[in-house]
Design a protein around this nucleic acid. Structure first.
Length: 225
DNA sequence: AGCCAGGCTACCG
DNA sequence: CGGTAGCATGGC
């Protein structure tokens, strides 16, 4: 059993299934992996993925609820909406001028998909979608095996000595994907492991890696290396 | 009061 | 290329 997989098992045992990505009205659907269940929910995950950039998800939920209250969690209403009204709705998530543009850029792209699953490369060509947001959309919106790496992931792996602080996004992503893939052969289970791994990292990161010194109280150290 | 949050782009050397 | 300022609200 490799070390990264061991970390996954320890985190899962401690925190349990996380049920990402939360959907309005259902929240964290723990141990139910049949989400998103329709195009509206996929679209909601995409918007949430953009809105959550460098922001807490609590703020994202407020923004999404503001839109939902206007029946605007869909392409056509957002496009017709006055831009300042849209910005006001997403204000709680911060960077609302940037994010309003990013979302409109994404919608132009999304419409052209006609329900198809986008490729990672296509997503990366959309202004406002970087590697993490692309993987977030693919992993949680489209159930594609693309692990999402965030600041906590890197911070934790650096602290535990798996990578150095200059490690790039894809290096970390493939290290984790290859490690989990070596231990989990079933495709469906591997996808769920990707989804849960990132969610568990965030949960653990919020508890032990948000304040300096990073890693204080982290219980992973004695179990690995 | 200051730091951090489930990042990305633009621009610099 | 790698490094960094700017973006902005909300919670602790």
């Amino acid at each position: 059993m490799n070390e990264i997989y061991k970390i996954y098992k320890i985190l899962y045992k401690n925190y349990g299934p996380q049920g990402w990505w939360p959907i309005l009205g259902y929240g964290y659907h723990k141990q139910d992996y049949n989400f998103p269940r329709n195009h509206d929910e996929i679209f909601e995950v995409c918007l949430g993925s953009i809105l959550t950039q460098n922001t807490t998800f609590v703020s994202v939920i407020k923004s999404l609820e503001n839109l939902q209250a206007k029946n605007a969690l869909n392409v056509y209403t957002i496009e017709k909406m006055e831009i300042n009204e849209f910005k006001e709705a997403i204000k709680p998530s911060g960077y609302y001028n940037q994010k309003a543009r990013y979302i409109l850029e994404f919608i132009a792209f999304y419409k052209n998909l006609y329900g198809a699953t986008p490729t990672r490369e296509e997503l990366l060509n959309v202004i406002g979608i970087g590697e993490e947001t692309a993987d977030s959309i693919l992993l949680y919106g489209y159930n594609q095996p693309e692990l999402k790496v965030d600041a906590y992931t890197k911070r934790i792996l650096v602290h535990l000595g798996f990578v150095n602080d200059k490690a790039k996004y894809t290096e970390i992503k493939f290290l984790i994907q290859n490690s989990l893939g070596a231990s989990i052969k079933d495709k469906k289970k591997l996808l769920i492991a990707y989804q849960e791994f990132h969610a568990l990292i965030v949960e653990h990161g919020k508890k032990h890696y948000s304040k300096k010194p990073y890693g204080s109280g982290c219980f992973l150290n004695p179990h690995v290396k």
